[in-house]
Design a binder for these strands. Structure first.
Lengths: 228, 228
DNA sequence: CTCTACTGCATACATCGTTCGCAGAAAGAA
DNA sequence: TTCTTTCTGCGAACGATGTATGCAGTAGAG
């Protein structure tokens, strides 16, 4: 196995030897269950092995590294993104796809951590990309602009989902770092050296916009700005 | 010290006891130097302590956790973002600020890892935000929209810088995961089940646009889309 | 001067990803 | 069938990491 082989190009089973007791899908499912319940950091090799009833070192018969396990988990989650039927109106279609992406991200918040630094490409992720490009097929702009718009769209959806997750956790227990950040910002605002920021904070007290409206408004703005 | 205290609100020196041998700035500088040279993962407690000539446990007299050290590093890097003079044209001003942000991010690529999941607020980060809001002070749109636009702008600048960093590393040695991903995408394109994606890849062979133009074009599109 | 609260730091610990080596099982070759 | 090859699960161990603890020494407060 060459060093630069994708797990998606490597055969799952060898031709010789005893039948494997597990498979990639089982590892991915166990990892997703753990991450859904306790976050991505709970997905340790030992925890996944335990969940499968396997020994800690057995996982390395299926993956070469922990990162590959996360890749499997990401693609498994991305498979939950439904591809809405095309209506012909590219903006509506792309909005529908973005909403699906948001839904799955909120269902698996650890995706924000897993895809924070890069987005590994697996079958489902590639399928998502193909569908997004298909949505824009009839639009007369350079292919380059379409790819850029899709990339920016993903970044924006992630950013929005991140703030949503942070706020939804407020209902239960507020993480230490958020409390510390809020305290510091309050101090800054009270200090008087940042008038625009202080003004922005007091303006914040109006009735909040429904999240769905906010999502639609921002995504629409970004997409129309990029695709004329 | 309460659990939810920001490092920026905690006094740097105690009133009693011997004079500290180092200070927060020295820790941050050592961390930045290590990260610039070998990436964020090279910033271990022991490595930073060694760089300072200190023992491994000494750092905890200045910070309570490794994350706080990274916070110090982030704010130190963000201090390098210059705040361009306001010309009165908000789009030009915000573009200039975005270019500064890009410049600093490319100078300290580890910022992409450090700020991937959240952006901790320190004095410099707050100063950046204040300046960005000031740039939009005369614009007649809701404050809410301005904050959103600035947040989306940051996300887009990071996303663009990430691809730039990935491509610039290509000049030297290509990381394994990039080779693997390229091989998989080539396989997908050759397979024929993803026509739009395959078409996009072949279209890619045109003469590349200068990076600065690409940056300006995308950021302009996003901002005009969001701020009418 | 005395006391108190800090300082640097050696040491230790728990946890993590990963490697190694071995006994046993199954597929292909004979 | 029998032999050989190549896989399987996995116990045990290794190196690295973030962090806690306890102690000897120092400097400002009283």
């Amino acid at each position: 196995m060459a060093a630069a082989d994708s797990i998606w190009l490597r055969p799952e089973r060898a031709s010789r030897g005893p039948a494997p007791g597990y498979d990639r899908d089982a590892l991915a499912a166990a990892g997703v269950a753990l991450a859904d319940a306790q976050g991505l950091s709970a997905v340790t090799m030992r925890a996944v092995a335990d969940a499968l009833g396997a020994g800690p070192a057995s996982l390395y018969r299926y993956i070469t590294t922990r990162e590959e396990l996360v890749e499997l988990m990401i693609d498994r989650a991305h498979a939950e993104i439904r591809h809405p039927e095309r209506t012909g109106a590219w903006l509506d279609d792309l909005l529908a796809l973005a909403r699906e992406s948001r839904r799955v991200t909120l269902a698996h918040p650890w995706l924000l951590d897993a895809t924070a630094t890069r987005t590994p490409m697996g079958p489902s992720t590639v399928g998502y990309l193909e569908h997004a490009l298909g949505t824009l097929a009839d639009l007369d702009v350079p292919t380059r602009d379409k790819l850029e718009a899709i990339a920016v769209l993903s970044a924006v959806v992630s950013a929005l989902a991140r703030t949503e997750v942070a706020q939804s956790r407020n209902g239960r227990t507020i993480p230490d770092w958020q409390q510390a950040q809020a305290a510091y910002l309050a101090h800054i605002a009270a200090e008087g050296r940042h008038p625009h920021l202080a003004a922005a904070f007091t303006h914040q007290t109006q009735t909040p916009e429904p999240v769905d409206d906010l999502f639609t408004r921002i995504v629409t703005g970004v997409l129309t700005g990029l695709l004329r």
